[in-house]
Every structure is written in C-alpha cells, then in structure tokens.
Amino acid sequence: MTAPMTETNTQNLASYNFAYLDEQTKRMIRRAILKGIAIPGYQVPFASREMPMPYGWGTGGVQVTAAIIGRDDVLKVIDQGADDTTNAVSIRAFFAKTAGVATTTATPDATIIQTRHRIPETPLHAGQVLVYQVPIPEPLRFLEPRETETRKMHALEEYGLMHVKLYEDIARNGRIATTYAYPVKVEGRYVMDPSPTPKFDNPKMHQSEALQLFGAGREKRIYAVPPHTNVVSLDFEDHPFEIQHFTEPCALCGAEQVYLDEVVLDDKGGRMFVCSDTHHCESRRAEGHRGALLGDEPVVEKEAAI
C-alpha cells in the first residue's frame, strides 16, 4: 500500500474531496437527512464515518454540514453561542480548508450555522440551516439505557416515562429541574432531545423559519425539524414550561431577554453577566447600545495564552 499521508499529501488537502467526505458518503447522509425531514423528530440511523476530529467534538454536526454545504454557502460556527471558542474556531477552519467556503460570524449572513449548545439570539430566516452537534440523541437514554427498548418506545409512542421523570423533578424540587437538553415533542409525535442547548432556547425551535438538522456522530443518528414545525417542550398544565430569566441585562450591550454567561471578575465574589451570543452582543454595541460595565474604549481583544 502506498503512503499518501507522507510527502505529497502533507502540503495540502487537495487529495481530499470537497468538504472532506467522499460523494458516496454525502449521498448516504443526505438520504438520512431527507428521511429525517420527512419524519420530524425521528432519529434516523446513519453510517457515521470516522472524522478527523474526536467523537463527541461535533463529528455528527460536521458530517451533516459536509453533506449539505456547497461552494456558495456561507458558514458560521458557534460553540456556547460564541464564534471564537476553540472548538468553533477549529471546525470553521476545517471547512475553510476542506471546502474553501466563505465564513462569517454574522448570523443573518450565514446560510449554514453549525452550533453546539446554543441557538443564535437573532431570529433565523427562511433558507438558513441550523446544524446542531448532538452528543446523546436519545431523550429516553437516561431513563432506559437499551437501544432496543427505546426504539420500541418511540415506535409505540410510549412516552409516559418521560413525564415520570418530570413528575419526580417536581416532587423532589418543587419544579422541573431540567435546565438544558429539555425534551420536546415534535409535531405532536416524536419526543426529541434538542441537544444540550439551555431550555432558554427551546421556544426558538418552534415554528422556526429555518431548517434545523441534528447530527450525532458517535451515536450514528440524524434527525430534523423542518421549517414551520411545532416543537413543544414537555410540561404539566399546572407546572408549565418556562425559560430561564436573568435579573439584569448584559453588562456590555445592555440586552435583555437574551441568554447570559456569568463571568467571574475577581476572587471576592465579583460577577458580571454578558451575552452568550457574541455576534449579537457585538452588533448591538456597534449600534450604540451600552451596558453598565462597558468602558469608554473599545473592548480590547486579547489572545488567550496557550
């Protein structure tokens, strides 16, 4: 066997196909995506490939993106809502290198947004695709570890167990204590894991203009929520689903009704809360919005030490 990874191939990735995956694989993934769109919320098994990044680090999302990306697409990648977190940077660089596509941090400009753990604050529009990286696609997994059993539960729509968990939450804590990966029912049929996004983002999935695709590489599942689909968070009539509320606005841009990250300022209990969606925060500041802790000078961007 030849050794294609030495000499000739270390210079560029030209020997890899556009967007890394071969066309045969992309077709296979697209078929899974189409099936997923046809049956919203249903987990379609697919022959997940080994990717040049570790399982659990977005291999599912990367495969979905690789299968749907075209030369004219504009890609945005976020992790924790931020464009500049290391894994987002790494995945964006991967596609810039293997597909040569344009990338952006501006939510409205992107045609494909790959995300881990957040949905952008700016409402998505028709034609956009939001690709979620999913670690554990099975919402029933921690109630029932067996795949053979959970598939049967989905097939027969036996979701009582899901509410047993929520019931236990309330009995024990006085409230539903699930804060992220909060289960939803899609189009009145399948119970789905929205990936570990905070439940704050659940309402954004409902009747979204954009197509939402979910890829779980290690678990080999793809699922989808087509545009204009009902996505309802599970709850009780007397303990309705509610999202997190923050008591104060973003310290940098003054935004309210957005998801905030807590930043520890010192070792004396000093804290501030800033937008988790970095693009949203930056664009608000560019528009002149100012939060309580925003200095007069523009925010200095410092490269993290190694």
């Binding site: 080994e50 570790p54 399982y55 659990g56 680090w57 291999t59 992790d79 924790q80 809502g81 977190t85 290391t86 894994n87 881990r116 753990h117 957040r118 670690p135 204590a177 804060t179 992220y180 990966a181 570990p196 996004t197 905070p198 439940k199 704050f200 290690r218 997190q244 998801y259 905030l260 990250d261 807590e262 988790s276």
Partner: peptide, 25 residues
C-alpha cells in the same frame, strides 16, 4: 476506544452555557 476517548475527552470542551443554567437553578 476511538469513540470512548472522544466522548470522555469532550468534557474538556466548554460547557459553560449549560453550567450557567444549572448554577441558576
């Protein structure tokens, strides 16, 4: 082991958004 190591090691990735939600709760 490629699957196992990836998923175990993915705990290194930032999880602060979800952690924030848990902190709050």
């Amino acid at each position: 082991n490629v699957q196992s190591t990836g998923f175990v090691e993915h705990l290194k990735l930032p999880h602060y958004v979800d952690f924030q939600a848990e902190l709050d709760l």
